[in-house]
Amino acid sequence: MSAEAKRAPGAETAGGRNILVVGVGGQGVIMISKVLALIGQRRGFEVKQSEVHGMAKRGGIVFSHVRFAPKVWSPTIAKGEADALIALEWAESLRWLDFLKPETGVFIADTRRIVPPFACLNRQQGAVTAYAKATPAEVVERISNAYALDASGIAAGLGDARAANTVLLGCYSVALDEPLEHWREALDLFVPKAARAINHAAFDAGRTWAEAARAGTQEVPTMPALFSARGPAVKSELEINAAWCKGCDICVKLCPERCLALDKKQIAVLTKPDACTGCRVCEWLCPDFAITVHQTAVGAA
């Protein structure tokens, strides 16, 4: 786009900002973008905010563009034009990376991972996932203004993990020269009365974290391997009693993984043992008790 050419490299448009807030449903993306929009308004700028949160129920993607400047034409931020990317979920932070201004864009992300069910490549326990592989250390290494923090952990430590969004807001606040009271007033407008104290604490914690990070005294958090907390994997084996099977086809048609079939004699056989998750649906629904699922733990945690 030609806008790229008109803009002095790295400079903010006369004190204005393009801020992209991303996350998944229920994390409070919209709440912090409203606070940011209000701060822009207080500074006497024209503000445009646009959001997509239609799929937000049950952990769908939510993003919000906040733009404030003397004059804002488009409500959305173009790729490479965001002064800041605030991400409430790790994979979302990576997905939106190319919206960040090269060189000067500020990256702030919670290292918490919310793995959507469809990221799982199969339904076995301890399944491999298609979830983003990049670690915070790798991202911080590549982006000059990157801050990756365990905001959810910090918020949980203060009493409510849901205030992670406000921790990130506090973290970003050091990039804007705005008195603390203004932030507090804006927050109070958008959080319920009962949640004010925790949100103030979360904001302060984020701000303190960012100041320390600027001074170079914060460590980049590491992320545990996905699913390591699920304990030992379970190996399932199917015992099919051919003498009891009457070939009704229920197990074949109702196995979620479609790993059973009827053989030439109309007896159920396991054709895809590797796809079997041990879910027991076949065992439960066999009217003739011909299937028994045996589960044994393999390896230690």
Partner: peptide
């Protein structure tokens, strides 16, 4: 007494389970 007398796919077997 197994296999039982019920027809293939009869729901009564599932209820018994």
């Amino acid at each position: 007494l197994m296999p039982h007398f019920m027809c293939p796919g009869c729901g009564h077997g599932i209820a018994l389970r």
